[in-house]
Simulated scan of single mutants.
Amino acid sequence: MALDDVDAGFRRGTMTAVMGPSGSGKSTLLHCAAGLDRPTSGRVLLGGTDLSRMSEKQLTELRRDRVGFVFQAFNLVGALTVEQNILLPSRLSGRKPDPAWVAEVVERVGLVRRLRHRPSELSGGQQQRAAIARALATRPEVIFCDEPTGALDTQTAAEVLELLRAVVDESGQTVIMVTHDPVAASYADRVMVFADGRIVQDMPQPGVRRIAEQLAALGRRRPVAAREG
């Protein structure tokens, strides 16, 4: 069972890090919360909207208008330039983007000189930055991130995390981020630790040291086969 009786709420205007071993249910939680997957039981609410009652068309429109998602595999459109990828959600929704905000996002992810390039011409880290810029460009209510700094060098990762932190603090947006990195998790207001589809720790602003200690303790309690699965 990917998620086992999970009951979690995320306050508007906060940043939450979701951690745990591989196979613990982290990405499934993100996919269900974003309306990408349907849970076999229970409900998913975005504000007052019950996603379980929506059609596929309605879910598509909700994700386009209210949700940003940064995929671990980037999911950029290869035939489009970086700039076109970043503006694609706005184009699909028919809404004019805020040029000043888009320019700020592009600058902060370090892609000003790469806007005319296609994804195949970028490094993995640059593709991840383009995916992050695309997710932020429309100012969505909630931004879901699956390992957003996994392909980035230390300096760029810090800049991306500061940008995610800023959209929470300055714009009141909500960020839910899956990560294996205690340093990345330390930027969050709250850290949830998963194991075997359940929440085993829910810590407010624990700091890098406590996060690392909790993950190490969890690893010691789990059998080797389970850790490797």
Rank of each mutant, 00 (worst) to 15 (best):
A8F: 14
D50N: 11
R53S: 14
Q58T: 04
S41N: 10
P99S: 01
E147F: 13
L163W: 03
M177W: 03
E141V: 10
L46N: 03
V106M: 11
I86V: 14
E83T: 09
M54K: 15
G172W: 03
R129I: 11
E162F: 00
L29K: 03
L30I: 08
P223A: 14
S27T: 15
R11C: 02
G42V: 12
G20D: 09
E107G: 05
A188N: 03
G48S: 05
G9R: 12
P39T: 11
G23L: 04
G207M: 06
I176D: 11
D169T: 07
S123W: 08
P21D: 00
A226T: 12
R118S: 08
M54C: 11
R11T: 06
V208N: 05
A103P: 03
E213T: 04
L36H: 07
I176W: 04
V224Y: 08
A188G: 00
T154L: 06
L161W: 03
G68L: 05
N85R: 11
P204S: 06
V105W: 05
V18F: 01
A79Y: 12
P206Q: 02
M54D: 07
H180L: 02
P119N: 14
Q126F: 09
T154Q: 13
V77W: 15
R43T: 11
R221D: 12
L36S: 11
R139D: 11
V67T: 09
T40K: 05
P223I: 14
G25K: 09
D189M: 07
A33C: 01
G207V: 10
S171M: 08
R91C: 00
A103Q: 12
K26G: 07
L51E: 00
G150K: 04
D181F: 07
V6H: 02
A135R: 14
W101M: 12
E107Y: 03
G23N: 06
R227G: 01
S90T: 04
C145S: 10
D65G: 00
V6D: 06
A158T: 09
Q127N: 14
A34Y: 08
V82K: 09
A226D: 15
S24P: 02
R220T: 14
G9K: 14
R227L: 15
A217L: 02
R118W: 08
Q205R: 15
L161I: 15
Q72K: 02
E213N: 13
V208E: 09
G68K: 04
E104C: 07
Q214M: 04
Q205G: 07
L136K: 12
I211P: 00
G172H: 05
